[in-house]
């Protein structure tokens, strides 16, 4: 790890071992960590995959269901677990009284009431079931529509890895993420590789986590989107720590901000040629650079302590 350009005052030092062991003994085993960022391409998947490989007995969930790419680095054999479905309305025109209750109820505008019939637009339907609830004629039935797939790594894999994929052309990532989260084993720590941005899919991941790691780089774009993601995490009251990726690149704006706000910088991944080369070859760098295993393990211990004390935000 390179020497930081400026003195870091917000590095975490844990002194109270008794306190730590007291709280990590129970809750930490169930720890759920979301690896997020505002900006895309900051290194979420890199951090999630390397962290998962560094610590043992952890479950890795690829929640970036629009473009799940953890397995590009893991290369596990995947087995189908379940098809994700959305319940969409099916209208029986013989029973429909054209009362328009369904179409005026639908907040997503998935139903249109024409003077002589109701048209449905399944791609816009969020599957809330409200339309069939308000249909007094009983003309609406719900039918399943596949929107995505959940897969898991075969049992002989070195890591418990579960991955969701949204079908091509589908718009709703959140139901796939929700289905994915139903496969969590509550007895072991979880790492979520989150989608980028700050929209519904990200919130469904952050909101399910005990701790949120924001991966960023200290560039104008990286900092801008980091602030958006931070705002989202704070709204959800999830404690936050930062991983500075490509450290040495750009400026020191993220670091200065974190110092002023008391946000811990958990790890710095330098803008290193070897790391970049391994990434380009699809190799998680903890495998080839064993000194990083320890750094990720330390980061995990720090997160456990911080989440337990509920500091960071």
């Amino acid at each position: 790890m390179p020497v930081p350009k400026t003195p870091v005052q917000n590095t975490i030092t844990i002194t109270d071992d008794c306190f730590l062991s007291l709280c990590t003994g129970g809750k930490a085993q169930l720890m759920k960590i979301a690896i997020a960022s505002g900006k895309g391409g900051t290194g979420k998947t890199t951090v999630a995959v390397n962290l998962a490989l560094a610590i043992e007995e952890v479950q890795l969930f690829d929640c970036d269901v629009e473009e799940p790419n953890c397995n590009l680095f893991l290369e596990f054999e995947l087995e189908p677990v379940e098809e994700v479905i959305c319940l969409v309305p099916e209208i029986n025109p013989d029973m429909c009284t054209l009362c328009r209750n369904c179409s005026s109820f639908c907040k997503y505008n998935a139903l249109a009431a024409l003077p002589n019939k109701i048209l449905s637009f399944p791609a816009l339907c969020h599957g809330c079931g409200g339309c069939s609830f308000v249909c007094l004629a009983g003309a609406l039935k719900e039918k399943p529509r596949p929107i995505g797939m959940i897969e898991k790594a075969s049992p002989e894999s070195s890591l418990t890895f579960i991955c969701g994929t949204l079908n091509i052309g589908e718009a709703m990532a959140t139901p796939v993420i929700r289905s994915l989260q139903r496969h969590i084993d509550e007895n072991r720590p979880v790492i979520f590789d989150s989608p980028p941005g700050t929209a519904c899919p990200v919130l469904s991941v952050m909101g399910y986590a005990d701790y949120c790691v924001l991966v960023t780089e200290s560039t104008p774009f990286g900092f801008h989107d980091f602030l958006l993601a931070l705002e989202a995490a704070r709204a959800l009251k999830v404690p936050v720590g930062v991983v500075l990726n490509r450290d040495g690149l750009g400026d020191s704006r993220v670091e200065e901000f974190c110092r002023a706000e008391g946000i811990p910088i958990l790890l710095r991944i330098p803008n290193d040629k070897m790391i970049a080369r391994l990434y380009s070859e699809g190799t998680p760098f903890v495998k080839e650079m064993p000194e990083w295993k320890k750094k990720f393990e330390d980061m995990f211990e720090t997160i456990k302590a911080l989440a337990c004390k509920n500091t960071g935000v």
Partner: peptide
């Protein structure tokens, strides 16, 4: 449809169909 979060065209078309 002008202020709909999604499905704006659906709401717009529904309205003008309703207006005959």
């Amino acid at each position: 449809g002008s202020e709909a979060s999604g499905g704006a065209g659906i709401r717009a078309a529904e309205a003008i169909a309703g207006a005959g």
